[in-house]
């Protein structure tokens, strides 16, 4: 069954509509990359799905359940986790405490889940007593993703996971994303790093000016001449 289906989403801040009639679909186990120029509305789309922004029009379904307009803490309970682009850790809390906060709404014993997350990011296990604010950019991104994984989400929304990272770290983070995906988590990823994002994607969406321009498999989009010329730098 389709994990996420967003239809005819129109959303924005105050009077201005940033998204117009946008659609997006994520199938089980898929990595879906959303690319497009700055200001295309990519982040706004993730925020609308997660309920940080209430769409003015349209419908969002998680599996068969409509989640349009639910508040973030409710959406999290339904099985979506979201990693914002910036300020995505609790800086004065330790790594371990960041993970515990990720599991805040869980009432069961989640120590096994913390272990699984640490297995995915061994560096974090070593540094678990350190404050997240003292970590490097790449490690912070790992804490941010680890926190989001604590809920065993059906779907993970990542907003520009490679932003501000050194090139070497970017490939590490992308490898981790594929690894997370292989554990059965579907993902929707917004990326500036369009080429890399499409390479690992099962499916891709191109947004521009708040509208859908194209969508196809990752491979097909990489081969598409127009996409190459406009968004992948030739």
């Amino acid at each position: 069954m389709t994990i996420l289906k967003a239809e005819n989403i129109t959303a924005g801040y105050t009077e201005l509509d940033i998204l117009q009639d946008v659609h997006l679909k994520v199938e089980p186990n898929q990595i879906v990359s959303i690319i497009g120029p700055n200001g295309a509305g990519k982040s706004t789309l993730l925020k609308s799905i997660f309920g940080i922004l209430k769409p003015r029009e349209g419908h969002i379904f998680l599996k068969s359940e409509e989640i349009t307009g639910l508040k973030p803490n409710k959406v999290a309970r339904k099985g979506i986790s979201y990693v914002p682009q910036v300020s995505n850790v609790f800086p004065s809390l330790t790594i371990q405490e960041n993970m515990e906060m990720g599991a805040f709404i869980r009432t069961d014993d989640f120590s096994k889940r913390i272990d699984e997350v640490y297995d995915l990011f061994p560096t974090l296990r070593e540094k678990r007593r350190q404050k997240a604010g003292q970590l490097s950019g790449g490690q912070r991104q790992m804490v941010a993703m680890g926190r989001a994984l604590m809920l065993d989400p059906l779907l993970l929304l990542l907003d520009e996971p490679s932003a501000g990272l050194a090139p070497l770290l970017v490939s590490t983070i992308f490898e981790k994303i594929v690894e997370i995906n292989q554990t059965g988590v579907a993902m929707a990823i917004v990326e500036q790093n369009a080429k890399e994002a499409l390479k690992m994607a099962d499916y891709g969406y191109v947004l521009a000016m708040g509208r859908n321009v194209l969508d196809d498999t990752g491979e097909a989009l990489l081969d598409n001449e127009e996409v190459g010329r406009l968004y992948l730098g030739g």
Binding site: P72, R77, F90, L93, M101, I105
Partner: peptide, 23 residues
């Protein structure tokens, strides 16, 4: 305590606390 840690988390980053499902 869980509530105490959530208080510190909210002081740190209210938006992220909300995203984590903290009321």
């Amino acid at each position: 305590t869980k509530m105490g840690k959530a208080m510190r988390a909210t002081a740190d980053n209210t938006e992220l606390a909300l995203i984590s499902g903290i009321d």
